[in-house]
C-alpha cells in the first residue's frame, strides 16, 4: 500500500495490478440469515466460486478482500459489521447479498432491522433476490470484477475517505496509524 493509493500508476502496471485484485478476492462471509445458505451453496462444488478466484479461505477479516453481507442486518448487529469492515485492509470490497442486506427487504418497517447495509458501510455491488440464487451471487461477483478491472485505486481510496465521513463513522477510515 502506501504509495500505491497516492500515485496513479502507468496503464500497463495498473492493468496488471487490477487484474491481480480482480482474481484474488478472498472472501469473508458475514452470514446473517437465509441468504447465507445461498452463499454457502455458491461456494460448494456445484457453483464453486473459487473458479472465479473468490477464495473462501479468509478465516478472519484481516486477510479478506471481499465482504459479503448476506442476510438481515439488525441494529444490534450493525456495529459488528462496521467493526469487521474496518478491520479489513484496503482495498476492500463489499457485496450486499439479498433484499434484507440491500435495504431491509421484508423488514422495511421493522423497529430492529437496519434498512440496508449501506447505512453502515459502503457497498460496491447489490445483488437482488430474496434470497438470490447462487448464480446471482456469481453474477454479482463478475459485476464486481468488471468494476475492479476498470477502477483506479487512488480514486477509490480518495472516495472511500469521503464516504467514511458521510456515512457517519466515528472518525475517517484512515489507512495508516489507526
Amino acid at each position: 500500500m502506501g504509495v500505491m493509493d497516492q500515485v496513479e500508476l502507468p496503464k500497463p502496471v495498473r492493468y496488471v495490478f487490477n487484474w491481480g485484485r480482480k482474481f484474488s478476492l478472498w472472501c469473508f462471509n458475514f452470514g446473517l440469515a437465509c441468504c447465507a445458505i445461498e452463499f454457502i451453496a455458491a461456494s460448494t462444488s456445484r457453483h464453486d466460486f473459487i473458479r472465479l478466484g473468490v477464495i473462501p479461505f479468509a478465516h478472519g477479516p484481516r486477510q479478506a478482500d471481499l465482504l459479503v453481507v448476506s442476510g438481515t442486518l439488525t441494529d444490534k448487529m450493525a456495529p459488528a459489521v462496521k467493526r469487521l469492515y474496518e478491520e479489513m485492509p484496503e482495498p476492500k470490497y463489499v457485496i450486499s447479498f439479498g433484499s434484507c442486506a440491500n435495504c431491509g427487504g421484508p423488514y422495511w418497517d421493522s423497529y430492529s432491522v437496519t434498512k440496508g447495509v449501506d447505512q453502515v458501510i459502503p457497498v460496491d455491488v447489490y445483488v437482488p433476490g430474496c434470497p438470490p440464487r447462487p448464480e446471482a451471487l456469481l453474477d454479482g461477483i463478475i459485476t464486481l470484477q468488471h468494476m475492479i478491472q476498470h477502477e483506479s485505486l487512488p480514486d477509490r481510496i480518495a472516495g472511500r475517505r469521503q464516504d467514511a465521513v458521510t456515512l457517519g463513522a466515528d472518525a475517517p477510515l484512515t489507512l495508516e496509524g489507526r
Partner: peptide, 25 residues
Amino acid sequence: RRGPVAAGPFGTLQLVADGIKFIQK
C-alpha cells in the same frame, strides 16, 4: 469441483494473482 479457472489459462495464474493482490493490500 473444478478449482480456479478464471485467472490465466486453467487458473494457472491464481497464485500469481494472489501475490499481486497481497502487494497492494
